[in-house]
Amino acid sequence: MIITDNLTKKYGGHLALDRLNLQVKEGEIYCLLGANGAGKTTTINLLLGFLEPSSGSAFINQVNVKENAQATKKFLAYIPENLMLYPSLTALENLDYFSGIAGKKLGQDELRNYLSEAGLQEEAFGRRISTYSKGMRQKVGIAIALAKHAKVLLLDEPTSGLDPQASHEFGRLLRQLSNLGVATLMATHDLFRAKEVATKIGIMKNGQLKREFYANEISLAELEETYLGLMQPKAAAL
């Protein structure tokens, strides 16, 4: 479960995140929409413990991130926009390495199973990552999350640059993880994919969460209209 309580981040005088309150329960997929600079990536960095909040708190599985960032990382997996692994290692070796340093010692069969579950073709298991497409690398990222038995998944623009088929496949994998009880927070620009996979959708602007609704309560057209309406600059007072 992910909880943020008045989570705020300031860079000097600039307010990057302003009193964010959100909650992602087990099995939920929460999509954060917003333009560049809206505060989506800052939220993820704060949840990962890469940044310290100026005020407020973030919790992963009831553990305060600021107080015990390392403990929270046992429960979470993270896939950035461009998942970069070790290019001269194969998918099996990358998965073995990242699972190993996270404390999960896995046999070859288990490693293969996780890669298969993540939708990777068997013939690719032994190939070096340097030969992989972005979509294939994202699947290895999912396999790392599966192998780690992550309770929380943080995704930062994971589908940007993926072709529609790969993006659809990725959405399917997210729903699969959601069915296993994983709480997922995904920052994205992709309204269509958000509507398709999300349980809940939040729209951010200037560091604030402006709107929040359940995905099944809104159509794609309404979502788009709401999003564009929020993104339009206010008319300057004459």
């Binding site: 403990a71 990382k73 046992k74 998942l83 990242f98």
Partner: peptide, 18 residues
């Protein structure tokens, strides 16, 4: 610079130790 540091830092390890 390669971009793998963020994945490493998302693991329950101390980067200094690493």
């Amino acid at each position: 610079e390669r971009g793998s540091l963020r994945i490493l830092m998302a693991q329950p390890i101390s980067i200094r130790q690493w």
